[in-house]
Design a protein around this nucleic acid. Structure first.
Lengths: 130, 130, 130, 130
DNA sequence: GTGGTCTAGACCACG
DNA sequence: GTGGTCTAGACCACC
């Protein structure tokens, strides 16, 4: 899977990294059991610091998306994913609201907003590369 | 309109302030021409720093939501808002994607995700206080 | 509350820090809402690096023991604690087993082992300093 | 006796190996004088590195659990084990404390904690396989 | 070779 | 002043 970092983005590098790996898992580009590059290699390939790459992995590990195999290295987990907790729903609503508000204020209505959402989900369910 | 600041939130205070005022305008709680409290008063009421309140107002002014009237003080603008530009659509998609991805990865499907979106919009279109 | 770091210990500094703060909360030495020193001050006082202190705080935050108040700084949380999840029970059993095994092998029996456990719990329920 | 390695575990392989052999001795599955597989065979069977298997044996030898017989190979020792020294008690208390603290903080009380301990000991005293 | 830990110095946004 | 992020260089244990 190809990972791209936007060094000008406001979102931290380790966060971009984290999200793209999660997206890879969600879309099936990264399959359960598949190995991921080592922190050193990943950092080298992307031209970022070892610790930054490590931070992304550490969080993914804490969230149960990946785990470290003593021989295979870093690997995509197959078992339980976090799931849709009430906590997550609250988080989602909180994150979504400002976006919806600004969209509404610019004249966008729910129908158009949902269209954007649908586009994203269609992409997620489509396993081939963009 | 009542404004509430969450001091434990990760989102900066000035940002919370800004969003709540925009939301007030969107929902019609703040009408065009209506006066807003001065920076000093707002800061005092909410128990926040002067600079912080000022930052929110400055940005709202730059975005064309409010303007400063020589006599009435800070008032809500009546003119048209920026509208749904292609730029905004791209921005929206970029912000929405990581949320959708994580939701999807946790087992949420488009239907459930849209339900959350609908909830928010229903609230926006309902002019009475929550 | 007084915190002491053993620089010769095998357990990482940030882990010692984390455990002592959790212990402080458990024993009631740190009460809900109480403020904790800033990372910089804590690091300075203990003679450790800023990042090491930060790592402890970051994990405590992720586990819901503390949170960052935008004005008061780092604060002990009052709300929900992690709770006794099945995950934690499995973790506990896994950690406990090697200790029990070695104790058993040295001739210790369950009664004596429980005595040690009871001692620790008695200390926890006793709010005054050791 | 059957040995199982968890390659995803945080505890090093050689440590898992060591603990399982000690547990085997404790439970009477491995009797005094009984022969153990050679380093080569053990490593081959478990699919681990030679050094790793060797490290476990070396430590077991140093701790007086096994010894190398010129002809029989690696055998379980029959002599007495170190016993419950004050040193070991201190060690035990130090290891147990963080576990008890976290458990307590999650709402677990001594009774429940002891129940977990009892489970482990019951297993140890039961000579048949799990 | 790997990941984990610690240190150090720098910049930025927030209040 | 605070916490958050990024970079850098070093050491260690494990395999």
């Amino acid at each position: 899977m190809l990972i791209k970092i936007d060094f000008n983005s406001e979102t931290p590098i380790y966060e971009q990294l984290r999200m793209q790996i999660i997206e890879g898992i969600a879309r099936g580009l990264l399959k359960a059991g598949e190995g991921l590059p080592s922190v050193r290699q990943l950092a080298g390939d992307l031209g970022i610091n070892l610790h930054t790459a490590n931070k992304a992995y550490t969080q993914l590990k804490a969230d149960g998306f990946i785990h470290v195999h003593r021989q295979k290295g870093v690997v995509v987990k197959q078992e339980v994913r976090p799931g849709v907790t009430d906590e997550f729903l609250a988080f989602l609503e909180k994150q979504l609201r400002p976006l919806a508000v600004e969209a509404y204020c610019r004249g966008m209505r729910d129908k158009e907003f949902r269209a954007v959402v649908n586009n994203i989900f269609r992409l997620l369910q489509n396993p081939k590369e963009e």
